[in-house]
Design a protein around this nucleic acid. Structure first.
Lengths: 200, 200, 200, 200
DNA sequence: TATGAATGAGGGTTCATTCAT
DNA sequence: AATGAATGAACCCTCATTCAT
């Protein structure tokens, strides 16, 4: 029996989430008070509780948002039936945005979610599925490569997938600590290392 | 004039830090209250403040502790004058302890410090120097490799160093989220990829 | 956009200040806990902090309140252009309220502020200007008297002003220690002494 | 069964009181921690509690000390049988030390005790008797004057005594707020006013 | 739907005092 | 007699959340 349209509902939620992202990105989840989000969003405390159950619910919504973005990246990348192309696409879709300073906040939030997952079961679930899905996809692709003989046998495909994820997440850490890091050089090096391996 | 020995002083500090590590590891820095540390340590609130200026001081002390452990690893690894051996040692000293479930808490704390660094300048300094030092050492070693022609020219040595650090830190993330991950397989895969590249 | 009126805001501040005055009057600033003020005011701790930055801010507000009351007394008294009348008015406006047991708390608070000024710079400023203004006014009036020859030459007008202030503040001390003291007799004696001197 | 001499006991007490006076003078009773006194005295916390029951006991001892100093002044002043001389002595013994910057701390402590008396029964008793005795003596002297006709009849001798005490205590307030105040001019003015009155 | 004043549990920290040594 | 590490109640204050309007 909502009086206002769903669009309005979603717009308000987006407004709150955007404000929360700004705050969380700067100060972290636990140093950010609801009052901070209230000020940043321009809404009232009461209004926020109309759209979210509480602070934790906002964090979860943000985690979901990040997660769904990654889902989309994976889905799009894996649409190709050619294994080589799919893998290249996957790497590209994850690494390309790293050069985009627009998603500065998104990366910082992402890192904070990784840690939050350690003590927050709800966030844990989101973060876990956000990593398990890419791992699954990568493992599948790598298995196929291996069957083609493009990769040494004897190495666990799942371990190789983890290596690739580590190359991604490990670099994000370095990036959030120092936005000056040369992304292009890193990506070039990482791709060189991977492709050398895949052609060995 | 102290009634108790310096060893006792250090023992108390260690006792508090140990209790704090247990708490922080489980609940995170900000969800852990001083009361939690009080209970875990078996001391009184006042006693804690005899040895630390406050909660933040405990976090800093823990960060320092982790940092100095890593310093030692690097120093020991780099004692060899042979570049190849030094690099091998470095990789080994960082990857080997990953199999050790003893340092379970240490890893979880480490990840939390990575995030804490984003909003806490004191922790930031410690984390930064904890990553900059290995990067510097690695870059130096990789440059020498490159001069020997063991690595493709044209790739930034510093970027390659970052790749190696990412392989380490990125995997730690995966490990803290799921202690069941097969460390041996990962290390084997990572070493295979690195050594393939170095011999390309 | 405020939900409640400015009058309401001021009423709440007054409510808190009134409660604080009751507490401070009985127990002193430092023996009064915020909890005491909370109980006396009937509000919650959080509510107090909506209107005041902290305990010190309440003390400062009370000091300001006392100060502005005295300012008004002086301003009103000095409105007359006749020196004799102005001085008489000034004496009257300060001494008359001493008989009023309504301002019982106000006097006790005043004395506490005098002492608080010794270690609290904010209160010091308020107390200083609360004494310097009357001194300045009195000195001006006394100088004029002296020029008319109504007072012995050779005495510093400013010293005489201090004598008059001492007669006021010194008596307040006696009054807060023992509310039974006969105010009328004191005022009569003080005025006799002053007027004898001014006519000598 | 004290092992050490009474002199030693008294020396220790004096040492603690001296340290406490320094601290209280600067920061006030309630802003001074026992730790402050410990540091200033060079003793240990435990040692202080061997000689005083607690913080309040130190304050009481200091109040007693001040009180007994004033008792001595009064006793000495009133030793003369000549009323005029006795009164002159009394005024002199109280006003003369005001020029002495040595007793800087003593005055600041005195003022703090006046306020402390409002909420501390033990201090109240000391302060009360410290003011009642001079008042009694003065009243007695003034009564005799009045009987001799040197003072207007109709004025309460006790009120006149209070005037004189106010001239003393009221000026001390002004002095502790601003040590630059010209003591000589004040005393000259105060004495002129009193003697004018007594000879009227 | 929207407000924002109000709540109150719980946060980090201090400090007068004690007691084993 | 003297120490000083230890205690723990109490301090001031914050902040996620609620609810009367």
């Amino acid at each position: 029996m909502p009086k206002v349209s769903n669009e309005h509902q979603e717009a308000r939620r987006a407004q709150i989430i955007e404000a929360a992202i700004q705050c969380f990105s700067k100060k972290g989840f636990h140093q950010t008070s609801m009052q901070d989000i209230v000020l940043e969003s321009g809404l009232s405390p009461g209004a926020i509780y109309l759209y979210f159950k509480g602070k934790e619910d906002i964090i979860r919504a943000i985690a979901d948002k990040q997660h769904s973005k990654e889902r989309d990246l994976i889905a799009k990348a894996c649409s190709s039936s050619d294994v080589k192309i799919a893998l290249g696409q996957l790497v590209k879709s994850f690494f390309e945005p790293l050069s985009d300073s627009e998603v500065f906040e998104s990366r910082r939030i992402g890192v904070q979610l990784w840690t939050e997952a350690l003590s927050n079961p709800i966030v844990y679930e989101v973060v876990r599925s956000g990593i398990d899905e890419p791992l699954r996809e990568l493992t599948k692709l790598i298995s196929e490569f291996q069957e083609q003989g493009s990769i040494q046998a004897g190495l666990a495909p799942d371990a190789i997938a983890r290596v690739m994820v580590a190359l991604y997440q490990g670099f994000i850490l370095q990036l959030v600590w120092d936005e000056q890091v040369n992304v292009g050089e890193y990506v070039t090096a990482a791709e060189a290392i991977i492709s050398t391996f895949f052609q060995a």
